[in-house]
Design a protein around this nucleic acid. Structure first.
Lengths: 242, 242
DNA sequence: GACTTTTATATGTCTGACAATTGATTTTGA
DNA sequence: TCAAAATCAATTGTCAGACATATAAAAGTC
Protein backbone atom coordinates (compact mmCIF):
# COMPACT_ATOMS: atom_id res chain seq x y z
CA UNK A 1 0.00 0.00 0.00
CA UNK A 2 0.92 3.61 -0.47
CA UNK A 3 0.58 4.40 3.18
CA UNK A 4 2.64 1.56 4.52
CA UNK A 5 5.53 2.45 2.24
CA UNK A 6 5.59 6.04 3.42
CA UNK A 7 4.24 6.09 6.94
CA UNK A 8 3.65 9.77 7.33
CA UNK A 9 2.26 11.79 10.16
CA UNK A 10 0.82 10.75 13.45
CA UNK A 11 -0.36 7.30 14.27
CA UNK A 12 -3.92 8.56 14.25
CA UNK A 13 -3.43 10.01 10.78
CA UNK A 14 -1.96 6.75 9.52
CA UNK A 15 -4.78 4.71 10.97
CA UNK A 16 -7.37 7.09 9.59
CA UNK A 17 -5.70 6.88 6.20
CA UNK A 18 -5.67 3.14 6.17
CA UNK A 19 -9.33 2.90 7.09
CA UNK A 20 -10.15 5.59 4.54
CA UNK A 21 -8.35 3.63 1.85
CA UNK A 22 -10.32 0.55 2.79
CA UNK A 23 -13.58 2.47 2.43
CA UNK A 24 -12.64 4.02 -0.90
CA UNK A 25 -11.41 0.68 -2.21
CA UNK A 26 -14.73 -0.85 -1.26
CA UNK A 27 -13.31 -3.29 1.28
CA UNK A 28 -15.66 -1.71 3.78
CA UNK A 29 -19.09 -1.27 2.32
CA UNK A 30 -21.74 1.21 3.37
CA UNK A 31 -23.27 0.55 6.79
CA UNK A 32 -20.60 -2.01 7.59
CA UNK A 33 -19.62 -1.87 11.22
CA UNK A 34 -15.99 -1.30 12.04
CA UNK A 35 -14.43 -3.26 14.88
CA UNK A 36 -14.91 -1.67 18.28
CA UNK A 37 -12.40 0.91 19.42
CA UNK A 38 -10.82 -1.62 21.74
CA UNK A 39 -10.43 -4.14 18.93
CA UNK A 40 -9.01 -1.54 16.57
CA UNK A 41 -6.56 -0.53 19.27
CA UNK A 42 -5.42 -4.12 19.52
CA UNK A 43 -5.20 -4.58 15.75
CA UNK A 44 -3.16 -1.45 15.18
CA UNK A 45 -1.25 -1.91 18.42
CA UNK A 46 -2.07 1.51 19.74
CA UNK A 47 -4.12 2.81 22.63
CA UNK A 48 -7.78 3.58 22.50
CA UNK A 49 -7.40 7.39 22.57
CA UNK A 50 -5.24 7.14 19.48
CA UNK A 51 -7.85 5.04 17.71
CA UNK A 52 -10.49 7.52 18.73
CA UNK A 53 -8.54 10.40 17.24
CA UNK A 54 -8.35 8.47 13.99
CA UNK A 55 -12.09 7.83 14.04
CA UNK A 56 -12.82 11.49 14.69
CA UNK A 57 -10.78 12.40 11.64
CA UNK A 58 -12.96 10.13 9.55
CA UNK A 59 -16.12 11.42 11.18
CA UNK A 60 -15.09 14.96 10.28
CA UNK A 61 -15.12 13.92 6.63
CA UNK A 62 -18.48 12.22 7.06
CA UNK A 63 -16.90 8.88 6.15
CA UNK A 64 -18.18 7.19 9.29
CA UNK A 65 -20.83 7.77 11.89
CA UNK A 66 -20.77 6.48 15.45
CA UNK A 67 -23.49 5.17 17.65
CA UNK A 68 -23.43 4.52 21.35
CA UNK A 69 -24.89 1.63 23.18
CA UNK A 70 -24.86 -2.13 23.06
CA UNK A 71 -25.07 -2.57 19.29
CA UNK A 72 -23.25 0.67 18.69
CA UNK A 73 -19.92 1.31 17.09
CA UNK A 74 -18.52 3.06 14.06
CA UNK A 75 -20.29 2.46 10.77
CA UNK A 76 -19.30 3.34 7.26
CA UNK A 77 -21.49 6.27 6.45
CA UNK A 78 -23.62 6.57 3.37
CA UNK A 79 -22.31 9.87 2.05
CA UNK A 80 -25.39 11.77 1.00
CA UNK A 81 -25.60 14.84 -1.17
CA UNK A 82 -26.37 17.28 1.66
CA UNK A 83 -23.24 16.15 3.55
CA UNK A 84 -21.17 16.50 0.42
CA UNK A 85 -22.68 19.93 -0.28
CA UNK A 86 -21.78 21.12 3.18
CA UNK A 87 -18.19 19.98 2.86
CA UNK A 88 -17.84 21.48 -0.57
CA UNK A 89 -19.19 24.80 0.58
CA UNK A 90 -16.93 24.97 3.62
CA UNK A 91 -13.86 24.11 1.59
CA UNK A 92 -14.72 26.44 -1.27
CA UNK A 93 -15.48 29.34 1.05
CA UNK A 94 -12.20 29.00 2.87
CA UNK A 95 -10.30 28.53 -0.35
CA UNK A 96 -11.67 31.79 -1.71
CA UNK A 97 -11.11 33.72 1.49
CA UNK A 98 -7.54 32.52 1.96
CA UNK A 99 -6.11 32.74 -1.51
CA UNK A 100 -6.55 36.30 -2.56
CA UNK A 101 -8.84 35.23 -5.36
CA UNK A 102 -10.06 38.27 -7.17
CA UNK A 103 -13.78 38.71 -7.46
CA UNK A 104 -13.35 38.71 -11.22
CA UNK A 105 -11.72 35.28 -11.18
CA UNK A 106 -14.32 33.83 -8.86
CA UNK A 107 -17.17 35.33 -10.87
CA UNK A 108 -15.71 34.07 -14.11
CA UNK A 109 -15.54 30.54 -12.75
CA UNK A 110 -18.96 30.66 -11.22
CA UNK A 111 -20.80 31.99 -14.23
CA UNK A 112 -18.92 29.79 -16.65
CA UNK A 113 -19.98 26.74 -14.67
CA UNK A 114 -23.49 28.04 -14.33
CA UNK A 115 -23.77 28.55 -18.05
CA UNK A 116 -22.84 24.89 -18.38
CA UNK A 117 -26.21 24.17 -16.77
CA UNK A 118 -28.40 26.40 -18.89
CA UNK A 119 -28.76 24.09 -21.87
CA UNK A 120 -29.86 21.20 -19.68
CA UNK A 121 -31.93 23.41 -17.43
CA UNK A 122 -33.78 24.96 -20.35
CA UNK A 123 -34.62 21.48 -21.52
CA UNK A 124 -35.61 19.88 -18.24
CA UNK A 125 -36.58 22.51 -15.67
CA UNK A 126 -39.86 21.71 -13.97
CA UNK A 127 -42.65 24.07 -13.04
CA UNK A 128 -41.34 23.91 -9.49
CA UNK A 129 -37.98 25.29 -10.49
CA UNK A 130 -39.59 28.13 -12.40
CA UNK A 131 -41.89 28.87 -9.47
CA UNK A 132 -38.93 29.01 -7.09
CA UNK A 133 -37.16 31.46 -9.36
CA UNK A 134 -40.22 33.69 -9.58
CA UNK A 135 -40.70 33.58 -5.83
CA UNK A 136 -37.10 34.56 -5.17
CA UNK A 137 -37.36 37.36 -7.70
CA UNK A 138 -40.41 38.64 -5.88
CA UNK A 139 -38.53 38.57 -2.60
CA UNK A 140 -35.59 40.35 -4.18
CA UNK A 141 -37.81 43.18 -5.35
CA UNK A 142 -39.20 43.86 -1.88
CA UNK A 143 -37.90 47.12 -0.49
CA UNK A 144 -36.35 46.96 2.97
CA UNK A 145 -34.71 43.62 2.31
CA UNK A 146 -31.29 43.41 3.95
CA UNK A 147 -28.23 42.88 1.81
CA UNK A 148 -27.63 39.50 3.40
CA UNK A 149 -31.18 38.40 2.69
CA UNK A 150 -30.89 39.67 -0.85
CA UNK A 151 -27.73 37.64 -1.39
CA UNK A 152 -29.28 34.56 0.18
CA UNK A 153 -32.22 34.89 -2.15
CA UNK A 154 -29.82 35.36 -5.03
CA UNK A 155 -28.16 32.07 -4.12
CA UNK A 156 -31.54 30.36 -3.92
CA UNK A 157 -32.45 31.68 -7.36
CA UNK A 158 -29.27 30.37 -8.92
CA UNK A 159 -29.58 27.04 -7.16
CA UNK A 160 -33.01 26.63 -8.70
CA UNK A 161 -31.45 27.35 -12.07
CA UNK A 162 -28.79 24.71 -11.48
CA UNK A 163 -31.20 22.17 -10.03
CA UNK A 164 -33.32 22.63 -13.12
CA UNK A 165 -30.73 20.61 -15.01
CA UNK A 166 -31.98 17.61 -13.03
CA UNK A 167 -28.49 16.26 -12.64
CA UNK A 168 -27.59 15.75 -8.96
CA UNK A 169 -23.87 15.47 -9.69
CA UNK A 170 -23.95 18.83 -11.35
CA UNK A 171 -25.98 20.36 -8.51
CA UNK A 172 -23.37 19.08 -6.10
CA UNK A 173 -20.48 20.49 -8.07
CA UNK A 174 -22.17 23.83 -8.46
CA UNK A 175 -23.16 24.15 -4.82
CA UNK A 176 -19.61 25.07 -3.92
CA UNK A 177 -19.19 27.45 -6.82
CA UNK A 178 -22.40 29.34 -6.11
CA UNK A 179 -22.55 29.36 -2.33
CA UNK A 180 -18.90 30.05 -1.73
CA UNK A 181 -19.37 33.31 -3.58
CA UNK A 182 -21.88 34.56 -1.06
CA UNK A 183 -19.38 36.10 1.37
CA UNK A 184 -17.76 37.91 -1.53
CA UNK A 185 -21.15 39.05 -2.77
CA UNK A 186 -22.10 40.27 0.68
CA UNK A 187 -19.24 42.72 0.46
CA UNK A 188 -21.05 44.50 -2.34
CA UNK A 189 -23.73 46.71 -0.89
CA UNK A 190 -26.53 46.85 -3.36
CA UNK A 191 -28.25 50.08 -4.21
CA UNK A 192 -31.92 50.08 -5.13
CA UNK A 193 -30.87 50.73 -8.71
CA UNK A 194 -28.46 47.79 -8.88
CA UNK A 195 -30.98 45.46 -7.29
CA UNK A 196 -33.49 46.48 -9.88
CA UNK A 197 -31.13 45.63 -12.70
CA UNK A 198 -30.20 42.28 -11.14
CA UNK A 199 -33.84 41.33 -10.73
CA UNK A 200 -34.49 42.35 -14.31
CA UNK A 201 -31.72 40.05 -15.49
CA UNK A 202 -33.08 37.28 -13.30
CA UNK A 203 -36.35 37.84 -15.06
CA UNK A 204 -34.70 37.45 -18.43
CA UNK A 205 -33.11 34.20 -17.29
CA UNK A 206 -36.36 32.82 -15.92
CA UNK A 207 -38.24 33.83 -19.06
CA UNK A 208 -35.64 32.19 -21.28
CA UNK A 209 -35.71 28.98 -19.28
CA UNK A 210 -39.49 28.94 -19.34
CA UNK A 211 -39.35 29.36 -23.12
CA UNK A 212 -36.65 26.66 -23.19
CA UNK A 213 -34.36 29.12 -24.88
CA UNK A 214 -30.87 28.30 -23.65
CA UNK A 215 -29.19 30.88 -25.85
CA UNK A 216 -31.07 33.78 -24.31
CA UNK A 217 -30.46 32.44 -20.82
CA UNK A 218 -26.76 32.26 -21.61
CA UNK A 219 -26.73 35.80 -22.80
CA UNK A 220 -28.53 37.07 -19.72
CA UNK A 221 -26.12 35.18 -17.47
CA UNK A 222 -23.19 36.70 -19.30
CA UNK A 223 -24.65 40.15 -18.84
CA UNK A 224 -25.23 39.43 -15.16
CA UNK A 225 -21.61 38.35 -14.83
CA UNK A 226 -20.37 41.57 -16.39
CA UNK A 227 -22.67 43.63 -14.23
CA UNK A 228 -21.64 41.83 -11.04
CA UNK A 229 -17.98 42.38 -11.81
CA UNK A 230 -18.57 46.05 -12.56
CA UNK A 231 -20.43 46.45 -9.26
CA UNK A 232 -17.56 44.81 -7.39
CA UNK A 233 -15.10 47.04 -9.18
CA UNK A 234 -17.01 50.15 -8.13
CA UNK A 235 -17.05 49.06 -4.50
CA UNK A 236 -13.35 48.25 -4.47
CA UNK A 237 -12.47 51.52 -6.19
CA UNK A 238 -14.55 53.45 -3.69
CA UNK A 239 -12.74 51.74 -0.86
CA UNK A 240 -9.35 52.41 -2.38
CA UNK A 241 -10.12 56.11 -2.61
CA UNK A 242 -11.21 56.29 0.99
CA UNK B 1 -24.80 31.51 17.58
CA UNK B 2 -26.29 28.58 15.75
CA UNK B 3 -24.17 26.09 17.63
CA UNK B 4 -24.85 27.35 21.10
CA UNK B 5 -28.60 27.38 20.54
CA UNK B 6 -28.63 23.78 19.36
CA UNK B 7 -25.68 22.05 21.00
CA UNK B 8 -25.55 18.96 18.87
CA UNK B 9 -23.27 15.98 18.92
CA UNK B 10 -20.26 15.18 21.03
CA UNK B 11 -18.31 17.73 22.96
CA UNK B 12 -15.44 17.30 20.53
CA UNK B 13 -17.77 18.00 17.61
CA UNK B 14 -19.13 21.11 19.31
CA UNK B 15 -15.67 22.41 20.09
CA UNK B 16 -14.48 21.69 16.57
CA UNK B 17 -17.52 23.50 15.24
CA UNK B 18 -16.97 26.55 17.34
CA UNK B 19 -13.32 26.79 16.32
CA UNK B 20 -14.30 26.20 12.70
CA UNK B 21 -16.82 29.02 12.89
CA UNK B 22 -14.16 31.30 14.30
CA UNK B 23 -11.87 30.48 11.40
CA UNK B 24 -14.56 30.97 8.77
CA UNK B 25 -15.70 34.21 10.38
CA UNK B 26 -12.13 35.45 10.26
CA UNK B 27 -11.70 35.73 14.02
CA UNK B 28 -8.72 33.44 13.64
CA UNK B 29 -6.55 34.47 10.74
CA UNK B 30 -4.17 32.30 8.78
CA UNK B 31 -1.10 31.17 10.70
CA UNK B 32 -2.58 32.34 13.96
CA UNK B 33 -1.68 30.03 16.79
CA UNK B 34 -4.49 28.48 18.77
CA UNK B 35 -4.14 28.20 22.53
CA UNK B 36 -2.35 25.09 23.67
CA UNK B 37 -4.38 21.96 24.21
CA UNK B 38 -4.21 22.46 27.96
CA UNK B 39 -5.48 26.00 27.67
CA UNK B 40 -8.28 25.02 25.32
CA UNK B 41 -9.26 22.27 27.73
CA UNK B 42 -9.52 24.85 30.46
CA UNK B 43 -11.45 27.33 28.30
CA UNK B 44 -14.01 24.79 27.15
CA UNK B 45 -14.02 23.04 30.50
CA UNK B 46 -13.22 19.63 29.08
CA UNK B 47 -10.29 17.29 29.27
CA UNK B 48 -7.32 17.33 26.96
CA UNK B 49 -8.28 14.16 25.05
CA UNK B 50 -11.59 15.76 24.17
CA UNK B 51 -9.83 18.86 22.92
CA UNK B 52 -7.46 16.68 20.94
CA UNK B 53 -10.34 14.90 19.25
CA UNK B 54 -11.74 18.26 18.26
CA UNK B 55 -8.40 19.37 16.85
CA UNK B 56 -8.06 16.14 14.87
CA UNK B 57 -11.42 16.80 13.29
CA UNK B 58 -10.21 20.17 12.12
CA UNK B 59 -6.91 18.72 10.96
CA UNK B 60 -8.80 16.18 8.86
CA UNK B 61 -10.38 19.09 6.98
CA UNK B 62 -6.99 20.78 6.62
CA UNK B 63 -8.25 23.73 8.65
CA UNK B 64 -5.36 23.53 11.10
CA UNK B 65 -1.91 22.03 11.23
CA UNK B 66 -0.04 21.03 14.37
CA UNK B 67 3.58 21.29 15.28
CA UNK B 68 5.38 19.74 18.18
CA UNK B 69 8.00 21.30 20.34
CA UNK B 70 8.53 24.40 22.40
CA UNK B 71 7.02 26.90 19.98
CA UNK B 72 4.62 24.31 18.62
CA UNK B 73 0.89 24.17 18.77
CA UNK B 74 -2.07 24.24 16.44
CA UNK B 75 -2.04 26.85 13.73
CA UNK B 76 -4.74 27.98 11.36
CA UNK B 77 -3.75 26.42 8.11
CA UNK B 78 -3.50 28.27 4.86
CA UNK B 79 -5.83 26.12 2.78
CA UNK B 80 -4.00 25.65 -0.49
CA UNK B 81 -5.39 24.42 -3.75
CA UNK B 82 -3.77 20.96 -3.59
CA UNK B 83 -5.34 20.31 -0.18
CA UNK B 84 -8.71 21.45 -1.45
CA UNK B 85 -8.31 19.30 -4.58
CA UNK B 86 -7.59 16.25 -2.49
CA UNK B 87 -10.67 16.77 -0.36
CA UNK B 88 -12.86 17.45 -3.33
CA UNK B 89 -11.68 14.31 -5.07
CA UNK B 90 -12.19 12.10 -2.04
CA UNK B 91 -15.68 13.45 -1.46
CA UNK B 92 -16.68 13.30 -5.11
CA UNK B 93 -15.39 9.78 -5.54
CA UNK B 94 -17.28 8.50 -2.54
CA UNK B 95 -20.38 10.38 -3.54
CA UNK B 96 -20.39 8.72 -6.94
CA UNK B 97 -19.64 5.27 -5.62
CA UNK B 98 -22.29 5.41 -2.91
CA UNK B 99 -25.25 6.96 -4.67
CA UNK B 100 -25.93 4.73 -7.62
CA UNK B 101 -25.12 7.52 -9.99
CA UNK B 102 -25.42 6.27 -13.52
CA UNK B 103 -22.43 6.65 -15.73
CA UNK B 104 -24.57 8.70 -18.07
CA UNK B 105 -25.42 11.21 -15.35
CA UNK B 106 -21.83 11.50 -14.19
CA UNK B 107 -20.57 11.84 -17.76
CA UNK B 108 -23.15 14.46 -18.55
CA UNK B 109 -22.09 16.55 -15.57
CA UNK B 110 -18.42 16.14 -16.21
CA UNK B 111 -18.47 17.02 -19.88
CA UNK B 112 -20.89 19.88 -19.41
CA UNK B 113 -18.56 21.42 -16.86
CA UNK B 114 -15.55 20.72 -19.01
CA UNK B 115 -17.16 22.44 -21.96
CA UNK B 116 -17.55 25.45 -19.69
CA UNK B 117 -13.76 25.68 -19.79
CA UNK B 118 -13.19 25.41 -23.51
CA UNK B 119 -13.95 29.00 -24.40
CA UNK B 120 -11.50 30.30 -21.83
CA UNK B 121 -8.98 27.58 -22.51
CA UNK B 122 -9.01 28.24 -26.25
CA UNK B 123 -8.29 31.85 -25.51
CA UNK B 124 -5.62 31.48 -22.85
CA UNK B 125 -3.99 28.06 -23.02
CA UNK B 126 -0.20 28.28 -22.94
CA UNK B 127 2.30 26.28 -24.97
CA UNK B 128 2.85 24.20 -21.83
CA UNK B 129 -0.75 23.11 -21.70
CA UNK B 130 -0.70 22.13 -25.36
CA UNK B 131 2.56 20.23 -24.85
CA UNK B 132 1.10 18.34 -21.92
CA UNK B 133 -1.90 17.33 -24.00
CA UNK B 134 0.30 16.12 -26.86
CA UNK B 135 2.53 14.19 -24.47
CA UNK B 136 -0.45 12.46 -22.87
CA UNK B 137 -1.86 11.64 -26.28
CA UNK B 138 1.45 10.05 -27.20
CA UNK B 139 1.39 7.98 -24.04
CA UNK B 140 -2.20 6.95 -24.72
CA UNK B 141 -1.26 5.64 -28.14
CA UNK B 142 1.49 3.39 -26.82
CA UNK B 143 0.50 -0.27 -27.09
CA UNK B 144 0.84 -2.31 -23.93
CA UNK B 145 -0.38 0.49 -21.72
CA UNK B 146 -2.53 -0.81 -18.88
CA UNK B 147 -6.13 0.34 -18.60
CA UNK B 148 -5.36 2.11 -15.35
CA UNK B 149 -2.44 3.96 -16.89
CA UNK B 150 -4.59 4.88 -19.88
CA UNK B 151 -7.25 6.33 -17.60
CA UNK B 152 -4.67 8.20 -15.55
CA UNK B 153 -3.29 9.71 -18.70
CA UNK B 154 -6.80 10.57 -19.80
CA UNK B 155 -7.30 12.46 -16.56
CA UNK B 156 -4.00 14.28 -17.06
CA UNK B 157 -5.07 15.29 -20.56
CA UNK B 158 -8.35 16.71 -19.39
CA UNK B 159 -6.72 18.49 -16.48
CA UNK B 160 -4.42 20.22 -18.90
CA UNK B 161 -7.48 21.29 -20.85
CA UNK B 162 -9.09 22.68 -17.72
CA UNK B 163 -5.91 24.31 -16.45
CA UNK B 164 -5.61 26.01 -19.81
CA UNK B 165 -8.43 28.30 -18.74
CA UNK B 166 -5.93 29.82 -16.30
CA UNK B 167 -8.57 30.14 -13.62
CA UNK B 168 -7.52 28.36 -10.42
CA UNK B 169 -11.04 28.41 -9.00
CA UNK B 170 -12.28 26.61 -12.06
CA UNK B 171 -9.44 24.09 -11.93
CA UNK B 172 -10.34 23.38 -8.35
CA UNK B 173 -14.00 22.88 -9.10
CA UNK B 174 -13.26 20.67 -12.05
CA UNK B 175 -10.73 18.51 -10.22
CA UNK B 176 -13.50 16.67 -8.46
CA UNK B 177 -15.62 16.29 -11.55
CA UNK B 178 -12.81 14.90 -13.65
CA UNK B 179 -10.88 12.77 -11.17
CA UNK B 180 -13.88 11.30 -9.43
CA UNK B 181 -14.86 9.75 -12.74
CA UNK B 182 -11.69 7.70 -12.92
CA UNK B 183 -12.94 4.71 -10.93
CA UNK B 184 -16.01 4.61 -13.16
CA UNK B 185 -13.85 4.91 -16.24
CA UNK B 186 -11.58 2.13 -15.02
CA UNK B 187 -14.57 -0.17 -15.19
CA UNK B 188 -14.63 0.24 -18.94
CA UNK B 189 -11.95 -1.93 -20.43
CA UNK B 190 -10.67 -0.24 -23.52
CA UNK B 191 -10.10 -2.14 -26.71
CA UNK B 192 -7.35 -1.04 -29.07
CA UNK B 193 -10.05 0.27 -31.38
CA UNK B 194 -11.75 2.39 -28.72
CA UNK B 195 -8.45 3.80 -27.52
CA UNK B 196 -7.66 4.81 -31.05
CA UNK B 197 -10.90 6.72 -31.36
CA UNK B 198 -10.45 8.43 -28.00
CA UNK B 199 -6.95 9.55 -28.89
CA UNK B 200 -8.24 10.83 -32.22
CA UNK B 201 -10.85 12.93 -30.42
CA UNK B 202 -8.20 14.17 -28.02
CA UNK B 203 -6.26 15.21 -31.08
CA UNK B 204 -9.25 17.16 -32.38
CA UNK B 205 -9.57 18.91 -29.03
CA UNK B 206 -5.89 19.79 -28.86
CA UNK B 207 -5.90 21.03 -32.44
CA UNK B 208 -8.95 23.18 -31.81
CA UNK B 209 -7.43 24.69 -28.69
CA UNK B 210 -4.18 25.35 -30.48
CA UNK B 211 -6.15 27.10 -33.23
CA UNK B 212 -8.10 28.92 -30.49
CA UNK B 213 -11.28 27.51 -31.93
CA UNK B 214 -13.60 26.92 -29.01
CA UNK B 215 -16.50 25.78 -31.13
CA UNK B 216 -14.58 22.85 -32.59
CA UNK B 217 -13.25 21.92 -29.18
CA UNK B 218 -16.81 21.92 -27.86
CA UNK B 219 -17.96 19.68 -30.67
CA UNK B 220 -15.13 17.21 -30.12
CA UNK B 221 -15.87 17.11 -26.39
CA UNK B 222 -19.51 16.44 -27.12
CA UNK B 223 -18.57 13.60 -29.41
CA UNK B 224 -16.22 12.22 -26.77
CA UNK B 225 -19.04 12.34 -24.25
CA UNK B 226 -21.36 10.41 -26.52
CA UNK B 227 -18.67 7.86 -27.29
CA UNK B 228 -17.77 7.38 -23.62
CA UNK B 229 -21.40 6.79 -22.72
CA UNK B 230 -21.80 4.31 -25.57
CA UNK B 231 -18.70 2.42 -24.43
CA UNK B 232 -20.05 2.26 -20.89
CA UNK B 233 -23.37 1.06 -22.20
CA UNK B 234 -21.71 -1.75 -24.13
CA UNK B 235 -19.79 -2.91 -21.08
CA UNK B 236 -22.86 -2.84 -18.86
CA UNK B 237 -24.95 -4.68 -21.46
CA UNK B 238 -22.28 -7.34 -21.82
CA UNK B 239 -22.24 -7.81 -18.05
CA UNK B 240 -26.01 -8.01 -17.88
CA UNK B 241 -26.06 -10.77 -20.50
CA UNK B 242 -23.44 -12.80 -18.68
C1' DG C 1 -48.27 -12.02 26.84
C1' DA C 2 -46.94 -7.44 27.98
C1' DC C 3 -44.29 -4.70 30.90
C1' DT C 4 -40.25 -3.87 33.84
C1' DT C 5 -35.67 -4.71 35.34
C1' DT C 6 -31.25 -6.23 34.64
C1' DT C 7 -27.18 -6.87 32.07
C1' DA C 8 -23.74 -6.67 28.60
C1' DT C 9 -21.42 -3.87 25.37
C1' DA C 10 -20.24 0.00 23.25
C1' DT C 11 -18.93 4.93 22.91
C1' DG C 12 -18.02 9.39 25.58
C1' DT C 13 -15.18 11.54 28.99
C1' DC C 14 -11.74 12.21 32.61
C1' DT C 15 -7.30 11.83 35.20
C1' DG C 16 -2.63 11.38 35.31
C1' DA C 17 1.42 10.09 33.48
C1' DC C 18 5.44 9.62 30.34
C1' DA C 19 7.81 10.03 25.66
C1' DA C 20 9.35 12.81 21.87
C1' DT C 21 10.26 17.04 19.66
C1' DT C 22 12.06 21.51 19.25
C1' DG C 23 13.12 26.35 19.98
C1' DA C 24 15.30 29.08 23.54
C1' DT C 25 18.61 29.51 27.23
C1' DT C 26 22.64 28.68 29.56
C1' DT C 27 26.99 26.89 29.95
C1' DT C 28 31.38 25.67 28.32
C1' DG C 29 35.66 26.03 25.78
C1' DA C 30 39.08 27.89 22.76
C1' DT D 1 34.44 37.40 22.37
C1' DC D 2 32.20 34.07 19.98
C1' DA D 3 30.80 29.52 18.69
C1' DA D 4 29.65 24.94 19.99
C1' DA D 5 27.54 22.01 23.28
C1' DA D 6 24.59 20.96 27.00
C1' DT D 7 20.41 22.01 29.36
C1' DC D 8 15.77 23.61 29.85
C1' DA D 9 10.99 24.42 29.09
C1' DA D 10 6.86 24.16 26.54
C1' DT D 11 4.05 21.52 23.66
C1' DT D 12 2.18 17.74 21.16
C1' DG D 13 1.97 12.55 20.87
C1' DT D 14 0.94 8.33 23.23
C1' DC D 15 -0.41 5.38 26.82
C1' DA D 16 -3.06 3.02 30.79
C1' DG D 17 -6.91 2.70 33.50
C1' DA D 18 -11.10 4.25 35.19
C1' DC D 19 -15.91 5.87 35.29
C1' DA D 20 -20.18 7.80 33.01
C1' DT D 21 -23.69 7.12 29.75
C1' DA D 22 -26.49 5.18 26.18
C1' DT D 23 -28.78 1.32 24.18
C1' DA D 24 -30.38 -3.10 22.72
C1' DA D 25 -31.00 -7.62 24.18
C1' DA D 26 -31.94 -10.84 27.85
C1' DA D 27 -34.04 -12.00 32.03
C1' DG D 28 -37.46 -11.50 35.26
C1' DT D 29 -42.25 -10.23 36.97
C1' DC D 30 -47.08 -9.61 37.04
Amino acid sequence: MKNSSTPQGDLSAQIAGSIRDAIIAGDLIVDARLPSEAELAEQFKVSRPTVREALKRLAAQALIRTQRGATGGAFVNHLKYPDAYAQQITTSTLLLSMNEVSIATACEARFALERACTRLSAERRSADHLATMRAEMFRQSQPGLSDEAFCASDVAFHRALVDGAQNPVMSYQLAGAVEAMQPLMNMITFTARSREKIVALHGQIADALEAQNATDADAALTELEAYTISLAKDVLDARARR
